[in-house]
Design a protein around this nucleic acid. Sequence first.
RNA 1: GCCGUGUUGGUCAACCGGUUAAGACGCCUCCCUUUCACGGAGGAAUAACGGGUUCGAUUCCCGUACAUGGUACCA
Length: 509
Amino acid sequence: MSKVRVRFAPSPTGGLHLGGVRTVLYNYLFAKKHGGDFIVRVEDTDQSRFVKGAEEYIFECLAWCGINADESVIVGGDFAPYRQSERKELYKKYAEQLVAAGQAYYAFDTPEEIETMRENRKAEGNGSLQYDAAVRMKMKNSLSLMPEETKAFLDAGKPYVIRIKVNENESVTFTDLVRGELHFENVNVDDKVLMKADGMPTYHLAVVVDDFLMKITHAFRGEEWLPSAPVHIMLWQHLFGLDNMPKWAHLPLILKPDGNGKLSKRDGDRLGFPVYAMDWTDPKTNEITKGFKELGFLPEAFLNMLAMLGWNPGSEQEIFSLDELVEAFTIERVNKGGAKFDYEKAKWYNHQWIQKLPIANYQKLVKEIFEEKGIEINNSVYFEKILNLVKGRCTLLPDFYEQASFFFRAPINWDIEAVKPKWTSEKKDFFNCFIDKIKQLETFTAETIETLFKELATEKNIKPGELQLPMRIMLVGAKFGPAVFEIAAILEKEETILRIEKALQIFEI
RNA sequence: GCCGUGUUGGUCAACCGGUUAAGACGCCUCCCUUUCACGGAGGAAUAACGGGUUCGAUUCCCGUACAUGGUACCA
């Protein structure tokens, strides 16, 4: 068997959608599982939809995910160029070959004429509005025209497209890796445009030609491509032979969490979650669409979550690293039905990965978050210690700021209500004594502080528990965070005393 | 409209003819913690509908319904 070669073929028209990343992932996993190559080919055949910066952005997203292409417009490769706009001249030859073989034809119809045809068919009560065998002899093309008329049009430079000639009496059968055997009657497939009037191929021609030229062995794409698969297969049959055709796998869609339908950017805006991998700024409107990365997701979690949306290992394992996914992935276990995106579950994955990964993996990112908020971090050992202490309560990276900023900034507001109702002069006295005692403490650790605290409480005949909450409010300002004595230990003696003294004044009524 | 694909709890899902129909997220209760979490123990909650095939269907087949994708000189 020849070497496995798969490709992700994005068109650079905007932000990189969740579903796109999952397609990348499955391609990548399959390739690596089989020791094959993963290729990224840019499908920019529609010049009218070209969006500046979109291509670079897509590669940035892949880099963030840690998925590297073996061949692409960035790294090059033996089958360059990897941008279809730069391969423009290649396609025409194949289209002409099809025309010469009677498998395709020139069509001169204007958009208006096609529109009229559709209106007529609709008026006739026809179920199909396609440009197909039923109408093609009534249209203006090299099949219906006399050869000299066609020649005259061509010579006169009349704009034309090349359409595939679909034989209505035949049918197409093929095996899809996720759906099994599929069958399509040709009557239902239309004479798709292969070459556009501007000389660019359409997707239909370009994928087939490039998949052949690039020796692609397996083609994974979204389910939305299923209806046009027969056209691609016919093209393979005509041009390169079915034996050389890649194996197809049409992946299920990722659906919106509420209601139904394909997940779109709008759903994210509406429901408050990201849909794009990374922040995307529309170059025309400057509108920013939030990405998973910027919201504080770890790539490991993002990929893990995506992998499980439409695939599962058949075991109870849910947490997978990229390498583990490569190992476990099989196309047979990809589901057929679409999956609704669940943001809560996505966050759960991130929480898991925050716990699992060493702090060092994301310390730099968290540091940036702190610095954006005006807290400079200059002791990374100290910082790491803190992050380790609070990570259990963090789901997204910015949560670290919420959970740990008090280590760097003494409280300026105190949850007085949590203390006041039970505040007594005895308690005040306790804390004053406590300060004196800890001043004499030689080793200032969570354990020694706790021992001292409890001994003193017993001595003063106050339940330690009743003092812990006030102590917490003194150090943190509010009712959250790790164990109080851990906090005190990290704050160190001097700062702990300072905060208690300050709070004591505030609690004074 | 036509064509394709799909349908197990609220969500992700296992099971590939015989099960008390796993597990996870979320939700609820309790425990732990006199903070917020984590964690632990429980709980509620599922095979769209109707026909077949079969000794036996969630599993296979056919309809219906619903959903979704396509129906572009977009990918």
